[in-house]
């Protein structure tokens, strides 16, 4: 059986792969959406923190013998703390200014981080082995699925659900949502909003670093690995609806699939299809698929 000239096996395989890529998009756009939702900062440095996460895991492994599993925890914490410091020292000073300042500041950070890692490690990247427990493949009949990729989908879904749970169902999440809607009023109830902002930024970039560690065994670890991804992730956040957490996660997975299928039918367009979708969505639903029109 063929679907538009492509055997059903290949078709299913591409959907599966689309989900794997979509999982990365989902975790990355999640952090971006949270940061934008609360801080109103377009965090251009998100890809750089993703890359930094992969490099921290690589350095922890090669200098201190830290294995993959501890690194999956250590790297996001290290990068999250670095992010929180960045928020305290720099980002804090530009709240309330024109959004372009946030864009410039975070873009500058991208150049600094990427340049720094390039000087230290070169541009062609470092190998990062797949953890031994997750080597090997599953034969699904229609495709060979590496165990590690299946692991990535599973972890991404768990992380997305956990994030959603924290924001929607816990006390700190309630404070967060309150601070998003009415910061002054929330502060008047004695909630430390500036601290909440720092934690949010740290957690957001920590998520990016977590995705970076997940990506390290699939790609190798190289300085521009984040900037290759982040532009697409921005488009996904816009399509999903700026600031919508649920929207970002679903759109991430969905666009992963769309991109995967484009690679089969017309692979030259695979780098642009996401932006085509973005243009269409902006024309028809300017607030994004899951976004609310603001009054």
């Amino acid at each position: 059986m063929d679907i538009f000239g492509v055997p059903i096996q290949a078709f299913l395989g591409q959907i599966m792969l689309g989900l794997v890529n979509g999982a990365f998009y989902a975790v990355l756009s999640l952090g971006l959406a949270i940061i934008f939702g609360l801080l109103r900062i377009v965090n251009f440095a998100h890809g750089a923190f993703f890359m930094a996460g992969a490099f921290v895991a690589y350095m922890a492994g090669s200098y201190f013998g830290v294995g993959y599993w501890p690194a999956l925890f250590v790297a996001p914490v290290v990068v999250g703390i670095a992010g929180a410091l960045f928020e305290r020292l720099f980002l804090r000073r530009i709240y309330g200014l024109d959004p372009i300042y946030g864009l410039l500041l975070t873009f500058g950070l991208v150049l600094v981080l990427e340049g720094g890692f390039r000087v230290a490690f070169g541009s062609s990247g470092q190998p990062f082995p797949t953890p031994p427990e997750l080597r090997g493949v599953w034969n699904l009949g229609f495709m060979i699925l590496p165990v590690y990729r299946a692991f990535v989908i599973g972890v991404a879904i768990v992380v997305c659900l956990a994030t959603w749970f924290v924001i929607e169902k816990t006390r700190i999440g309630a404070h967060l949502r309150a601070a998003t809607e009415r910061p002054e009023l929330t502060q008047s109830f004695g909630i430390n909003v500036p601290m909440l902002l720092t934690i949010t930024y740290g957690a957001g970039v920590g998520l990016a670093a977590f995705a970076g560690v997940l990506a390290a065994p699939i790609q190798h670890v190289y300085p521009s690995m984040g900037s290759d991804l982040v532009i697409i992730v921005f488009a996904i956040v816009v399509i999903g609806g700026l600031g919508s957490i649920f929207g970002s996660a679903v759109t991430g997975l969905g666009l992963g699939v769309v991109e995967g299928l484009t690679k089969v039918y017309y692979s030259q367009a695979s780098a642009t299809v996401v932006f085509l979708v973005m243009a269409l969505v902006l024309l028809l639903r300017p607030a994004g698929l899951f976004g609310r029109e603001e009054n």
């Binding site: 055997p7 096996q9 290949a10 395989g13 591409q14 792969l17 689309g18 794997v20 890529n21 495709m143 060979i144 990729r149 699939i218 790609q219 521009s224 690995m225 290759d228 991804l229 995967g260 690679k263 089969v264 692979s267 030259q268 695979s270 780098a271």
Partner: peptide
């Protein structure tokens, strides 16, 4: 043949086509 853009990070789709 499958043509991919410069600096592609994920080749899994192309590998699947090559296998097919």
């Amino acid at each position: 043949a499958a043509r991919h853009p410069l600096a592609t990070t994920d080749f899994s789709s192309y590998i699947l086509q090559a296998q097919a």
